[in-house]
Design a protein around this nucleic acid. Structure first.
Length: 374
RNA sequence: UGCCUGGAGAAUUCAACA
């Protein structure tokens, strides 16, 4: 049985749903581990509902089963379901706590996440790193730094998170990022790519090139990062060459290329990419939308916006920015009220639309009614 | 005692930085 499970979990690791199913169905017996593997493989493929139905069907559950389902909900961004499940769990361990805290932080509830972190019966490096990583991706460098300063020991992952935090804050912290990287006892491709990203954010293209050359290896992620670095400098030729040099391409790489054209005034090329790329998603649609906005083609931006099947907050913000950039204050206001959710970017966009167009008194009212940041 | 669960890198929106 353990041998069967080993084979099964190998497919789970690879995210191979069909093989995993096949193995599961041909096993003579199932243990709780086999069932857990099935929850896991559904979760990894983004099928949280299927994961739940496996969970409900299984004859025995252990804490790992609960944690797996919690992870499935959290991964799908369903905070409500995550909370409900967490509350109904018979017991919790570090993994459960870490998962629910991450769910809160990922949804932007940093105060709650931090409070839960303090309430946890015990912490470890992973739970701290989890929260710090959320701060980092939200651009809250100081908060991330403070957390790491209070940790006794950092490992490669924690250091990479800190590197990423520096990277997010652009050129203020490039020096610190570089120093941190130089002091790291070990490095992997992820750390190298985070450093490359730090140089990109700082607009230091020579730094990007030399980091890229020094990297012991390259993969799709680091190549895409380099493409973006070129694109940001308007060096489309090199961006394109980087794309062409990729041994394989995914949706992110395609979107990066699309955006390279869109942000540098090559709208027709951007459209060509958009029409010829193997898949499209919200992000690629938003990228083209912003290209239209940049080129002053607000109507086409609007058409694109309307054609997005599942709009995200970024979709709304992008459309808002499209209006804001061209002084369509009326539309900005209307859209702002219509939006299902708002974040800091939303408010900043609104404010800049108002101030750029002389509505200073209204801007100050808006300033006063902004929600406090945690 | 080593069959299953939690943390890190790339694309899209505002501003800031140059």
């Amino acid at each position: 049985l353990q041998d069967w499970n080993r084979v099964l979990s190998e497919h789970v690791r690879n995210g191979n749903l069909h093989e995993a199913k096949r193995v599961f169905d041909s096993m003579p017996h199932h243990s709780v581990v086999s069932w857990n593997c099935m929850i896991s493989v559904y979760a990894r493929n983004g099928h949280s509902l299927q994961a739940r139905s496996v969970f409900q069907q299984m004859p025995w559950k252990n804490l790992i089963s609960w944690n797996l389902l919690l992870g499935a909900f959290s991964r799908s961004g369903d905070l409500e379901a995550s909370i409900a499940l967490f509350d109904s769990m018979p017991l919790w361990d570090l993994v459960s706590w870490t998962a629910i805290i991450k769910a809160f932080a990922a949804a932007g509830y940093f105060c709650i996440a931090k409070r839960l972190l303090d309430q946890m019966p015990e912490h470890d490096l992973i739970s701290w790193t989890t929260v710090a990583a959320q701060f980092a991706s939200d651009g809250q460098v100081d908060a991330a730094k403070a957390m790491f300063d209070s940790m006794p020991q950092l490992d490669l992952i924690a250091l990479t998170v800190m590197l990423d935090a520096y990277a997010q804050s652009g050129h203020h912290h490039l020096q610190r990022a570089q120093e941190l990287f130089d002091r790291m006892p070990e490095r992997n491709l992820l750390a190298w790519t985070a450093l490359l990203h730090a140089h990109t954010q700082a607009g230091n293209i020579q730094g990007c090139e030399s980091v890229f050359e020094d990297m012991p290896e390259a993969d799709l992620v680091s190549l895409t990062a380099m493409l973006v670095a070129y694109a940001q400098q308007g060096r489309i030729r090199e961006a394109r060459d980087t794309f062409d040099a990729m041994p394989e391409r995914n949706l992110i790489a395609w979107t990066a290329l699309l955006s390279a054209y869109a942000q540098n005034g090559h709208l027709e090329l951007a459209e060509d990419i958009f029409n010829s790329m193997p898949q499209r998603n919200v992000v690629s649609m938003e990228a083209l939308l912003s290209g239209y906005a940049l080129g002053g083609r607000v109507e086409e931006a609007k058409v694109m916006f309307n054609s997005i099947p599942e709009r995200t907050l970024v979709s709304w913000n992008s459309m808002l920015a499209a209006y804001a950039q061209h002084g369509h204050v009326k539309e900005v206001k209307a859209l702002f009220y219509e939006m299902p959710a708002r974040d800091q970017v939303t408010w900043d966009t609104l404010l800049s639309a108002l101030t750029q167009n002389g509505h200073l008194e209204l801007a100050s009212v808006v300033l006063g009614s902004m929600p406090e940041r945690c």
